[in-house]
Amino acid sequence: MKLSSSARRALHAVLISGSYAAAARHAGVSQPAIAQQIKSLEQHCGAALFERRDGYLAPTSFCEELIVLTEKIDALEEQAARLLERRHSIHTGQLRVGLGNSMPGMALIAAFQREYPQVNLSVTLSDFAHIIQGVVEGQLDIGVLPNVPPDERFVRETLIHQEVVAIAHPDDPVSRFSRLDCEQLMQVPLIFRSRGSSTQALVDTAFRKAGLKPRARLVLDTRDGVYEAVANRLGVGFMWRHGTGRTDAIHRIAVTGMGPPCPESVFRLVESQDPVIRAFFVAAKNFRRHAEVLRPR
């Protein structure tokens, strides 16, 4: 015999109320219906569930053991109901994501959209400073950035580790090198990002540690602008190794002194409770498990 939800409700109602009449009023059913539920349970169990004491129905020791289990069943059913409700709200939700690099964020968004195709996603591509500001001020629900600063306001999930590299046109003489140092880079036209870029912050630090003060031929606001400038042979630029999914011939070259690979992470505010945001973090954890193809080589 399965313990139906109606039988559990009758059992709990009698336990709380102390009589069939009061239990019927509590459960919103007839008194005979309550009495029949309890009688059927007792017949199946072969044991009494209640005994009359001072005019009230008191639970037997067997009933108390059974109640412990039925309360666990009720709690699990409630959890399942909440999970189903969250799933429904995810399918009809909205999400605002800020990316510092096109990749790996776009790949993660694609994975999330395959799981939740009805979620309305808006994506902002901007520099490091603006993505941080957007999340802090609530203009963005989620950010994806390298080197997210330690901040108690943020919850984060690392996707991959990657380093900043130089990028050069295949016809540029430096493209034959697999590694360059800052002194060699001083001999070529350089393309920099504007302030607020995490890429440029690391480039500036590397040159400063080398005791060098480079002058850029071009300073551009966007990573795509830098990439296009390199593609048009205007000089050597810099980007995160896996910052784009493009597969053209632009060469990525390691740079001595640029520092070790840095974590690129998904982050949100600690107080964010939206189920869509939490679902995106689950997708990020799954993405990390299958992201070996994006790890530095």
Rank of each mutant, 00 (worst) to 15 (best):
R8T: 03
L11G: 02
S19D: 01
Y20G: 05
Y20I: 09
A24F: 00
A24M: 00
G28K: 07
S30Y: 02
Q36M: 09
Q37H: 07
L41G: 03
L41W: 03
E42R: 06
E42I: 06
C45G: 04
L49W: 02
Y56E: 14
P59M: 05
T60G: 04
F62I: 15
C63M: 00
C63V: 01
I67V: 15
E71T: 10
K72Q: 08
K72P: 00
I73S: 01
L76F: 06
A81H: 07
A81K: 10
R82E: 10
H88W: 14
Q94T: 15
V97W: 00
V97G: 00
G100Q: 01
M103V: 08
M103T: 09
M103Y: 12
P104E: 06
M106P: 06
A107Y: 07
I109W: 05
A111L: 07
A111S: 09
F112Y: 09
R114C: 07
E115T: 12
Q118T: 15
N120T: 13
S122Q: 14
D127I: 12
I132M: 13
V135Q: 11
V136Q: 12
Q139H: 14
I142S: 00
G143P: 10
L145C: 15
N147P: 03
F154M: 05
L159H: 08
I160N: 00
I160F: 01
V165Y: 00
I167P: 10
D171Y: 02
R176D: 10
F177P: 05
S178C: 13
D181K: 04
E183C: 02
Q184A: 07
M186N: 02
Q187F: 00
R193I: 07
R193W: 06
S197T: 15
S198V: 15
T199I: 15
Q200V: 06
L202I: 12
D204F: 01
D204Q: 12
T205G: 06
T205E: 12
R208H: 11
K209C: 06
P214L: 03
P214V: 01
A216N: 10
A216V: 13
R217K: 14
D224P: 10
V226F: 08
E228G: 04
R233C: 12
L234D: 10
G235Y: 04
V236S: 01
V236N: 01
M239C: 13
M239T: 14
M239I: 12
W240S: 12
H242I: 14
H242C: 12
H242F: 09
I250T: 11
H251C: 11
T256W: 01
G257H: 05
P263T: 09
E264V: 15
E264F: 04
E264L: 10
S265V: 09
V266E: 01
V266R: 05
L269M: 12
D274V: 10
A279E: 02
K285Q: 15
R288V: 02
E292I: 14
V293C: 05
V293A: 09
R297N: 05
R297W: 08
